[in-house]
């Protein structure tokens, strides 16, 4: 939800902050889901309840060590 221009929108505050974090070009977020959203098939694959999501991990990104 990145806009080309500044806008006034109605949005839940927790979601607004998540959008702000995205715009900060964060490299890594440690997060865990509280609300169960996995399907039974994904649970059967023994997915971890906790996880680390990362992005912009390319070596070309100067803020990330090679």
């Amino acid at each position: 939800m990145t806009f080309e221009t500044r806008r006034r929108i109605g949005i839940e505050v927790s979601i607004a902050q998540a959008e702000a974090v995205k715009l900060c070009r964060v490299d890594g977020i440690a997060a865990y889901p509280i609300t169960p959203k996995r399907t039974s098939s994904s649970i059967s694959r023994k997915s971890s309840p906790k996880g680390i999501s990362t992005r912009n991990t390319s070596p070309s990104n100067p803020s990330i060590p090679p």
Binding site: T2, R6, R7, R8, I9, I11, E12, V13, S14, R25
Partner: peptide, 23 residues
């Protein structure tokens, strides 16, 4: 945290101008 409020958003360029890449 869980209420909907009117919020003035900024653009990616606004954020990039204000917050430089992390070194």
């Amino acid at each position: 945290s869980h209420v909907v409020e009117p919020i003035e958003t900024l653009t990616q360029q606004d954020f990039d101008d204000f917050l430089p890449p992390y070194e």
